[in-house]
């Protein structure tokens, strides 16, 4: 299931894992069912090195410049950014709500920490999401095992360190089974 579709180019700096960028946008007036979610989510592409990451990222709109109900997802290659995926179904996510104006910087710091293996939780990280909404933006990072408290605590502490958030920022952990209800 984790077949790699891309490899680092000559002289490039390999990443620990391959990743895939995805983009989704809610069509106004449509129900947010699982099927329409899967239909609305589009793969942007996969990368295996630092240099390949920058080639995608440099051409992508920054989250703070997106309009409407849009999300960027960055997941390890082979993991779909949805709770039904085998890697996610026993997992959960840390959620941070951001006032408008912070999303671009926080998203960049979050994904650089993930790509650089700053979380130190073995294979636990699945991916990250930035969700652009009307009044606020949300960033989240997903891990495989929601019941593993040592892992979730370590992810939280790393987030605090790498995001350099205002001290009053609230961080919330949600299991995917809670999110479905």
């Amino acid at each position: 299931a984790k077949k790699k579709t891309v490899v680092p180019g000559a002289g490039e700096h390999p990443l620990q894992y391959n990743y895939t960028f995805w983009y989704s946008r809610r069509t106004p007036g449509r129900p947010a069912s699982s099927q329409s979610y899967e239909q609305n989510i589009k793969q942007i592409g996969s990368f295996a090195s630092v240099e390949q990451f920058w080639r995608f990222y440099s051409h992508m709109t920054r989250p703070g410049d997106l309009t409407g109900h849009s999300d960027f997802h960055l997941f390890k290659e082979g993991i779909k950014p949805m709770w039904e995926d085998d890697a996610n179904k026993s997992g959960g996510k840390w959620i941070i709500r951001l006032r408008k104006g912070l999303a671009s910087r926080c998203w960049e710091n979050l994904i650089l920490a993930m790509l650089g293996e700053q979380f130190m939780v073995g294979e636990e990280i699945c991916g990250a999401v930035v969700s652009v909404r009307f009044q606020e933006d949300i960033i989240s990072i997903w891990n495989k095992t929601a019941s593993d408290q040592a892992t979730t605590a370590r992810i939280r502490d790393t987030l605090r360190r790498v995001l350099n958030l205002p001290p009053n920022t609230i961080m919330e952990y949600k299991t995917h089974t809670d999110s479905i209800k």
Binding site: G9, E12, H13, L15, V50, W54, L112, L115, E117
Partner: peptide
């Protein structure tokens, strides 16, 4: 095996490397 760890500055410094262009 060995884990490939990069800090933020290292990643940002690769942003404008000739290979990335």
């Amino acid at each position: 095996g060995t884990r490939i760890i990069y800090d933020r500055k290292f990643l940002l410094d690769r942003r404008n490397s000739p290979i990335a262009q």
